[in-house]
Computed example of a mutant assay.
Amino acid sequence: MARHLSRRLAQAVLVVAGVVVLTFVVMRLVPGDPAVTYAGPRASAAQLAEVRRRLGFDRPLTVQLWEYLSALVRGDWGTSLRTHQTVLKDISTAFPASIELVGTAMLAAVLAGIPLGLLAARHARGPVDGSVRVSSMLAVSVPVFLLALVMQNVFATKLGWLPVAGEYDATLDTTSPLHVYTNITAVDALLTGNWPILGSTLRHLVLPSLAIAAYPIGVVAQMTRAALIEESAQNHARLERALGFTRWQVLTRFSLRPAFGPVLALLALVFAFSLVNAFLVESVFDWPGLGRYAADAIRSSDTPAIAGVTIAVALTYVVVNLLVDLAQAAIDPRVRMT
């Protein structure tokens, strides 16, 4: 297990290093002068030259790359040209809101997708299986931004069942101010016993998290179904049926655990895809997460912020993949041999 972990860690470091170098190169190839964004369009030539010197843009690219890598290792991700705050501070404030949204969506994907896949495998090639497959295909096919707009228009604007936008009711900042510890509003409200904000946050979470969860639910349901059907065709499943176990018992007691390995691997990919989809959903529901921060950075050509968002997403993807890989190794010892 230790050898498996060290090998995966080495691969993760190489992936992150590659993303950082590629991000730096792309950041330098983007048209425009970052010094103008930082100093403002009315800055004089002398002021722009001073900004370039202060930010290190007047040095050779190899020196800039080395200094950039060294600063990242020290935790210095640069300064946002738009907010004039450190990029790491901006991201640490915005990213938790995105994790709150995507985490809720992934929880819904696991709680709904796996049972749906199990149900489809139990009634393979029957009406229930067909219904699950058609529903999952629709969930996978609908663009997330379109689904978000439809849900917002139907359930928030027309029916008025749920809030239209925002993370929670802004008036609660006056009546029930929230003490921030993690920047994940639902967690902070739960830790501090702030029930008004917790209730409001959960209501605001429903529509955007369901919009993001549609694709993962469909993919997880399809993968669970396929993995269970394949596992139930193995020799051990035939032996278990011969010993008198029902098809449902064979699926839940003997086939689900080995079939869960591919589903876990899929969850890591789906998480990364959902994190990118969250950027679109955050724009629709005015959710104060990393997507809104990235959109503002792109509009203002804030290259350090754009690079910081890219690296943050890449690091999250690598960490999630590593955790899923370790979980797979714990569930199925055969994974450690690969």
Rank of each mutant, 00 (worst) to 15 (best):
I114V: 15
S283D: 12
R334L: 00
L178V: 11
L48P: 05
T224N: 00
W195P: 01
S300A: 11
L61N: 01
M337I: 08
F245D: 11
I197H: 04
P304H: 04
I114Y: 02
A305H: 04
D129N: 01
Q64A: 07
P127N: 08
T83A: 03
A165T: 08
N235E: 14
S176D: 08
S176L: 03
L269R: 06
A148L: 02
T157V: 15
Y38F: 15
S80G: 11
Y215Q: 11
T192K: 13
P163G: 13
E100F: 00
G78W: 04
R122G: 11
L149W: 01
H236K: 03
I184S: 12
P196V: 09
R53L: 13
E230V: 06
A221D: 06
W287D: 04
L88I: 15
G291P: 11
V25T: 09
G78C: 01
F260H: 05
M1L: 10
T201Y: 12
D286G: 11
D332M: 14
W77C: 02
R225N: 13
H4N: 06
V15L: 13
T182M: 09
Y38I: 13
D76E: 14
L118H: 09
V132G: 04
T185M: 11
G193C: 02
G103T: 00
H84E: 10
T93G: 03
L326W: 05
L48N: 06
L61M: 04
G40H: 04
A10L: 12
Q234K: 15
M223A: 05
G117L: 10
A112H: 04
V128M: 13
A221G: 03
T303A: 06
R334W: 00
I99Q: 04
D58S: 09
R225E: 15
A226M: 01
W161I: 13
L178A: 08
T93R: 15
P163D: 13
V25M: 05
R74T: 07
A189R: 06
Q328M: 14
L256C: 02
T174V: 14
R247F: 08
